[in-house]
Design a protein around this nucleic acid. Sequence first.
RNA 1: GGCGGCAUAGCCAAGAGGCUAAGGCAGCGGUCUGCAAAACCGUUAUUCACCGGUUCGAAUCCGGUUGCCGCCUCCA
Length: 475
Amino acid sequence: MSLTLYNTASRKKEIFEPLTPGKVGLYVCGVTVYDLCHIGHARSAIVFDVLVRYLRDRGFEVTYVRNFTDVDDKIIDRAAQLGKETHAVAREYIEDFYADMDRIRVLPADQEPRATEYIPQMIRMIERLLERGFAYAAEKDVYYAVEAFKEYGRLSGRNLEDMRAGSRIAVDSRKRHPMDFTLWKGAKPGEPQWPSPWGPGRPGWHLECSVMSNHFLGPTFDIHGGGRDLLFPHHENERAQSMAANGGRFARYWVHNGFVTVESEKMSKSLGNFLTIRDALDQYHSEVLRLFLLSKHYRSPLDFSQKDVLNLQSGLIRIYRTLERLEAILGPPGPPAVSHQDAFIQDFVQLMDDDLNTAGGIGLIFEKIREMNRIMDAGAMDETVLNPLRQDRSHLLWAGNILGLLQEPPAAFFGQMTGGTPGPDTPEIQRLVEERTEARARKDWTRADEIRDQLKGMGVVLEDGPQGTTWRLDV
RNA sequence: GGCGGCAUAGCCAAGAGGCUAAGGCAGCGGUCUGCAAAACCGUUAUUCACCGGUUCGAAUCCGGUUGCCGCCUCCA
């Protein structure tokens, strides 16, 4: 079995074979830090987080690079708006990014370079492009000459002729071709700037990724990822620059995740449906969010609707109830020990090998949950039952680990689901439960039901079992 | 105008030539229970937008139609 990934460049699934056996170089376009991250960023981050977790589980040594764009027009605008320095704005949003990623359990990348740390290297790359005839200076700006790069448009499947005809932007008269893009942008007064052979200015957007991927992964590396929207022009331009300046093939596999809409509409500030990660986390547990974002194939568009998220939440609660039940029987789990002979593991791997079919994997998890509940319902609890159960739980948690799910002890999960606060006062609940138990003992069903209703009003649900009555906060 | 994607049960969603079309949510019936809750069992698509074609055989491949959506300008 081998991992296949859909390669945007070839428009088909390909067997993944790294450049160096056993090692994977992965570069993912991170965020431009001019605002809080939204759930679209979360999806991208989670998709590549799962890819990295899976590659590592499969034994690859992964070098994961994810950048920050910390100099850009939008940051400059935002800084002006807030009356702050651009670097201060960038720094604050980088901190927010880390806080958000932490909460949705996206592991840090191995390298997280910032554009502003690589200005001298960017200038050198521009000089190289000028020397090789792929760029030209116009006053204080430098442009990339797309016509000089034969393969321009190949990655995104377009050609210069069509784009010239359909171009909707007012063309800068200094450009030789309408699609030529900025490598270096002369600074206006008050803008962040760095000295350069063309005067003070700042780099164009695409350049940083070319420089930083080359710095950490070399001129040819395995996987380049990002949101679908980055395919053009960003990735096309990155590729054009990198191949022209560094030689090499640049990225061998291009992986793009699909977009997130909110209640069927594209997220935008003007529509007021810009859903930040932290707003989403105010409403949903981070694992609910994660499960939801992984419940559809990563390449498909995903609509974030409250109804659908709540559906998944019900499913996750069922999983955790089963985990809670298992813990009562088996005690807390140790570190996952996995048998690759196991059918569940094999099925899960097969699904993940198929271009990361996380939705299929989640289906498998639910099947396993049902099977385990069935076993526990059957009652007999000798070692011939407990051992397989223990193993199944281990496998379940292993799969959860790859998806970044089922990471909480069940009690903690339910605690968080109910708001994290103790809620109604426990001694009072216990007193009522006891009173009800006495009422039930003398078959005073009216009183018993009265108490149950009273507790229900307090958000407490009772479960009468053979071992007596237990209660839990409603979620 | 150019390029690309998607249409699977009430809702969400796997499946991409051939065993009974995964799974979740919701609903209904049942087991359990004093009644519930939870869990489990059963049930809910003779059919995969529509029309043709290829094939012994198609949600799955090809052509067309309709309807959504994305990119082509900053965007994860």
